[in-house]
Design a protein around this nucleic acid. Structure first.
Lengths: 340, 340
DNA sequence: CTGAAAGCGCTTACAG
DNA sequence: CTGAAAGCGCTTACAG
């Protein structure tokens, strides 16, 4: 039988006692790059294994000032765009030795949450929900905690941001739909106060204008599945219904397609073309086969991780606003331009 | 102008100095239930606000032995079942004063990850991916950290588990399909070594047997979208194709439906009935309208949170295996039994 | 390379 | 109710 297993956690002092060395030596053995002789290291490792020792990450964080914790703020996980970014970003950060502390936000409590985050001494913050208040942004800047807003930005904020080129994306969609011969093109907006919606919409209108068109009708879906369904009902209740709809994100586009097909008996794309934005995995499912604008290929995740880690590791936080290329992904939910 | 804002974090000692009180008094002011006179509390709160003080959660965790951190292990976030459970469980835990530390696992490194988790002094672990090795389970038990396996179980493990009644769920599906007049009922399995798949399959076979039927053919989808598509191709390539398919989860069922309809030109449910398991939100999307078995209504999230918090707060960890009722959700992807 | 000692920012008996 | 002091488990100069 081995030693009696203790019921209280094993500390470096326990290991030191067991191996007959100093506590500092134990600590060095578990600190990459610290100087310990091979003989001592081996003896300590053996003792540690026997006792089942594991360094206390909290104590390490305290004394070193490095928690290796990154906070991620997310509002909803039902739009597949966010779980996927959460998964990919988490893997990247884990691979670099960091861990993700997850914060689900409720509408409106942003600052309260950020305050809680700060208590955990996180080394960086990713905001994939709403935006940081200017007050908190200032506080983060003061303490040198980098903040990256993911898929959103605030021009006047000191926080960095990573977005796709939403203006160009919106423009691409307008161009594609007009060239596809559509003449009554509607728009289902997301949340009106989001930078992403603003830019997609602005680019879309710009694209329409380039062809001498304007939006046929604009309704608000609020980025929710239900909201988008209601918006679609409004849009298609009038007799002169649109012949195409640009929906501000895929998650809403699925709902719009459901309503168009199931409630109005219209075919997509024969009667109505639908285009979304994000290119979430479901967009390629045959049940929807949604033409959309890709945000994943563009490296938003990589860029977010890079900005964050660079600023953490150099301890130099300065605002960066990365805008990545938008790419139209043509599938079957919208009529194609001639010759394409 | 207010005081110069310090570049170094504000500590309780700073606040104490500023307010001319002891550091203990500051600590008490921020400890719910500790005794401080209203006058002193007010003075301290004022000083804290002026300096922008926030208690250091790590230091608090260290000294009190309570990190208020719960680890959640997840493998993939593309099956909507998991993001949703992550969202709901996180909200519950946050509301109770805990935070979720997220760990994305790679295939096979389970134990390495759990070891890393333990370093963070988490107070509880939720495993929504694979299962805990018996060694680590023993270690968690030793240190008194409750572990709940979510949507899976290991009979011989000391870890608790929360599942739906997968055997009954499988049986319900078989019964429903046979009563719907199907005679060649196929099965698309998930991962063969998962308890969930095992039980759903066993219940399904049992249900078939009750009607004197056996499975028409069984293929393996491995719980992935691609794997399920390939499985469906195998299943439908033979001339005497099935007239119904039970797919071990919704995520795979969508893929199966895509293949059936897009590649084999079959109609659902006119030519083939499809039934899934989980009742993820997409199952109710009109593009699929999937008949399935609900796992959400059954309170798996609530039960998981309850077990976890109860064991943390009473410091009494004992194995619990909660099995919640399964409920068939009838939609349009499967032919209905007569008179239903 | 090694050990004794200080200190990270807190909580919590212990006296008063 | 309040303050001085010990201590949580580490890392990291500082001597040797």
């Amino acid at each position: 039988m081995t030693d009696e297993t203790p019921t209280t956690p094993v500390t470096s002092a326990d290991v030191a006692r067991h191996a007959n060395v100093s506590q500092s030596a134990v600590s060095r053995t578990f600190t990459p790059g610290a100087s310990v002789s091979p003989k001592m290291r081996e003896k300590i490792l053996k003792a540690a294994a026997e006792l089942g020792y594991r360094p206390n990450a909290l104590a390490r964080a305290m004394i070193s000032g490095r928690s290796r914790l990154i906070a991620m703020l997310v509002a909803y996980l039902d739009n597949q765009f966010y779980p996927l970014m959460l998964e990919q970003l988490s893997r990247k950060l884990q691979a670099s030795g960091y861990q993700v502390l997850l914060f689900m936000t409720e509408p409106g409590d942003q600052d309260e949450v950020v305050s809680r985050i700060l208590q955990y001494q996180v080394e960086g913050i990713v905001m994939a929900t709403a935006t940081l208040s200017s007050e908190l942004a200032r506080e983060c800047a003061r303490t040198g905690i980098p903040v990256v807003m993911f898929n959103r930005y605030v021009a006047t904020s000191p926080a960095s941001s990573v977005t796709s080129d939403n203006i160009e994306g919106g423009r691409l969609v307008a161009d594609f739909l007009v060239r596809g011969g559509h003449e009554r093109i509607g728009f289902v907006a997301g949340a009106e106060d989001s930078s992403t919606n603003r830019d997609r919409e602005a680019g879309f209108y710009k694209g329409l204008a380039e062809h001498g068109q304007t939006v046929f009708e604009r309704v608000i879906g609020g980025y929710t599945f239900e909201g988008a369904g209601d918006a679609a009902r409004r849009l298609f209740s009038r007799p002169d219904r649109p012949d195409a709809v640009f929906v501000a994100n895929d998650h809403m586009a699925f709902s719009v397609m459901d309503v168009i097909r199931a409630e109005f008996g219209l075919r997509v794309p024969e009667d109505v073309s639908v285009v979304g934005y994000d290119d979430v995995p479901q967009a390629s499912w045959k049940g929807y086969d949604l033409t959309t604008v890709s945000q994943f290929g563009a490296g938003m995740i990589d860029t977010t991780a890079t900005i964050l880690l660079e600023q953490i590791e150099t301890a130099a936080v300065r605002k960066r606003a990365a805008v990545l290329p938008a790419k139209l992904i043509v599938r079957g939910s919208a009529r194609l331009p001639q010759g394409q």
